Amino acid sequence: MGSSLALVIGIPLTRALSAVLDWRSIFWILNAMMLLSLVYFLKYLPKADHASTKLDLKNELQFFKDGKTLLLLAYTLTMFMGYNAFYTYATPYLLLLFPSIEPLMSLILVALGLASFTGNLLGGHVSDAIGYAKSMMLGAILQTVSMLLILVFQPSKWLSVLFIIVWLMSAWFTGLQLNTGIAQVTENKSSFMLSINGSLIQLGGALGASLAAVFINLSGIQSIAVVALMTSLVLVLIQVVSMKRYS
């Protein structure tokens, strides 16, 4: 919830500040906020019992031999490649295609943040009702359909905005299930695999943004939707294989 709520507040606020401050001033503000957060955590975060969290690397590495775990990790990497490939460039994408939308961009970013928050909330409830595996499949299908609609209705300003909101909601709908899946397949015995999963989120984001930059240079910014669509199709394939083999 924290990440999606940050999108509601942080991105529109930064965009508003960029109109009156240069990037150096914004970075200093961010540094001050992080320093205050560090002081807060040092003061109030409970100390961990390191004796009870000792890493048994040999046992942890055994999870890499489990196909279900590997498919979950592949899903995480692929999903965040597609997510960052599109969302990193979502603002310039809309502004380049529809310059008249610029005065409303802050409101659109707020709507995108609310969509991520709503998707996260709905994803948790649906996962509780039908299980994380089916929920991940549903999320992958929703991402594929919404990205396909973004491509089909690319010339239409408001339909593009609408389907981007739906796509972002479906992406965050799935995000919560990734750690849930890892926790369940490892029977809550591997904080190491949860850390690996978190690292793959960051790696996938970096790879996706870089891949999108290559496509933009080759084919224009409209092509980022193609990158996101391809990764969504891969997600569906991964989940089909996972559910057929391990359900």
Score class of each variant (00 low, 15 high):
residue 127 S to T: 14
residue 197 N to L: 00
residue 136 M to I: 11
residue 173 F to H: 07
residue 239 Q to L: 14
residue 75 Y to S: 10
residue 213 A to D: 03
residue 232 S to M: 02
residue 54 K to D: 08
residue 201 I to L: 05
residue 127 S to R: 13
residue 144 T to D: 02
residue 231 T to G: 07
residue 79 M to F: 11
residue 177 Q to E: 06
residue 243 M to L: 10
residue 132 Y to T: 10
residue 91 T to H: 01
residue 73 L to N: 08
residue 117 F to A: 12
residue 170 S to I: 00
residue 63 F to E: 11
residue 6 A to P: 11
residue 81 M to G: 06
residue 7 L to M: 13
residue 11 I to E: 10
residue 181 G to E: 06
residue 147 M to Y: 06
residue 40 Y to K: 09
residue 244 K to G: 01
residue 194 L to E: 05
residue 214 V to R: 08
residue 95 L to C: 03
residue 8 V to S: 04
residue 178 L to N: 10
residue 123 G to T: 03
residue 155 P to E: 04
residue 83 Y to A: 05
residue 2 G to K: 06
residue 118 T to Q: 00
residue 144 T to H: 04
residue 105 M to P: 03
residue 33 M to I: 07
residue 211 L to N: 04
residue 158 W to I: 02
residue 131 G to T: 05
residue 123 G to Y: 00
residue 185 V to D: 00
residue 204 G to I: 05
residue 31 N to P: 10
residue 243 M to C: 09
residue 2 G to F: 12
residue 134 K to F: 06
residue 142 L to C: 11
residue 188 N to A: 12
residue 151 L to S: 11
residue 20 V to F: 10
residue 108 I to G: 11
residue 234 V to A: 14
residue 229 L to N: 10
residue 138 L to Y: 09
residue 40 Y to C: 13
residue 243 M to V: 06
residue 231 T to Q: 06
residue 169 M to P: 00
residue 73 L to A: 05
residue 192 F to N: 00
residue 43 K to H: 11
residue 83 Y to L: 12
residue 104 L to V: 09
residue 139 G to Q: 07
residue 108 I to Y: 02
residue 32 A to N: 09
residue 148 L to G: 15
residue 61 L to E: 04
residue 43 K to C: 08
residue 121 L to E: 08
residue 73 L to H: 14
residue 158 W to E: 09
residue 123 G to S: 02
residue 79 M to N: 15
residue 215 F to I: 04
residue 137 M to C: 02
residue 227 V to Y: 07
residue 221 I to M: 00
residue 226 V to H: 12
residue 159 L to W: 13
residue 119 G to H: 02
residue 243 M to P: 09
residue 199 S to K: 08
residue 121 L to I: 09
residue 120 N to V: 04
residue 96 L to F: 10
residue 232 S to L: 01
residue 245 R to I: 04
